[in-house]
Each structure stands twice: as structure tokens, then as C-alpha cells.
Amino acid sequence: MPDQVTVEVVYAEASRQVVRRVTLAAGSTVLQAVEASGIEAAVAGLVIDPAQLGIFSRKAVPGHIVEEGDRVEIYRPLTLDPKDARRRRAREG
């Protein structure tokens, strides 16, 4: 069993994407990967909500153990409620 894992931590905005590759001790968590990436400090005004994290587009709890090659994603809050967007499209079309 390897003693380290390398993962990508990603945060995307409408105009740019921030990707950091980090190497952590085996057994590290999603939250530890996010903290090690330094993305929160690199993106002005970013406050990471531990409930808004995922791995490869699937929601993950902060204590989930990361594996070699995982893509840890930091999700932004929704700017428009999906139900409201659907209603608006139905009215317009």
C-alpha cells in the first residue's frame, strides 16, 4: 500500500478554473486535500462550504478518504434555483 496519494483539487468559476495537484499522506480526507491545495487563499472571497464538496461529480463528505488520482471538486452555490429556471423556460417556450 502506498504511503502517499496524489489528487487534483478543482474550483471553477464562470470565467476560470483553478486546478491544484497535491500529494498527501495515504488516508487523507477530502477536506485535508482542499486545505492542502491552498485554493481558498488563491481565490478572492472564496469561502469553502464543507457540504459542497465532491469527487468526480459525486457529492462527498469532508471526511471521505481520497484515493490516488481522485478529482476533488469544490462546488459553488447555485445562482438560480433549478425549479425557477424550469418554470421560466416553460413560460417562455
Rank of each mutant, 00 (worst) to 15 (best):
G69F: 06
V47P: 01
I39A: 03
V5A: 11
D3P: 04
V19Y: 09
A36H: 00
R20W: 10
E73H: 00
V18P: 02
A51Y: 05
G93L: 08
E8N: 15
L24C: 02
Q4K: 08
V18I: 15
V43I: 13
A12D: 04
G93R: 06
Q17A: 06
R71W: 12
D70A: 08
Q32C: 05
P50E: 02
G45C: 10
V30F: 03
R76D: 07
V22Q: 01
S15E: 13
V19Q: 07
T23R: 08
Q4E: 14
A26C: 09
I39P: 01
L78I: 15
V61S: 13
R76I: 04
T29E: 06
E67T: 04
R71C: 15
G45K: 09
Q17I: 14
V66N: 05
Q52S: 12
V18G: 06
G45A: 08
V22H: 02
A33T: 09
R87K: 15
A41V: 07
V61A: 13
S28F: 11
L46H: 00
R76Y: 10
V30R: 00
R87L: 15
A90G: 11
A12M: 10
E68W: 04
V66L: 00
L53P: 01
I55N: 02
E35V: 13
S15H: 08
R89Y: 07
Y11R: 01
Q32R: 10
L78T: 13
M1K: 15
P2V: 12
V19T: 13
F56H: 12
V34Q: 04
D3G: 11
S28D: 12
V34P: 00
R86S: 12
R91D: 06
R76A: 07
P77S: 08
E68N: 00
V22C: 04
P50Y: 00
V34D: 00
V47R: 14
E8S: 13
V18R: 05
V5F: 03
L24G: 00
L80F: 13
L80M: 14
A26M: 04
V9F: 06
R16E: 15
L78C: 11
P2F: 10
P50D: 07
V34W: 02
A42T: 03
T29R: 03
A12V: 05
R91N: 07
V34Y: 00
T29G: 04
V10C: 15
A33F: 04
V9P: 06
Y11C: 05
R88F: 01
L31Y: 09
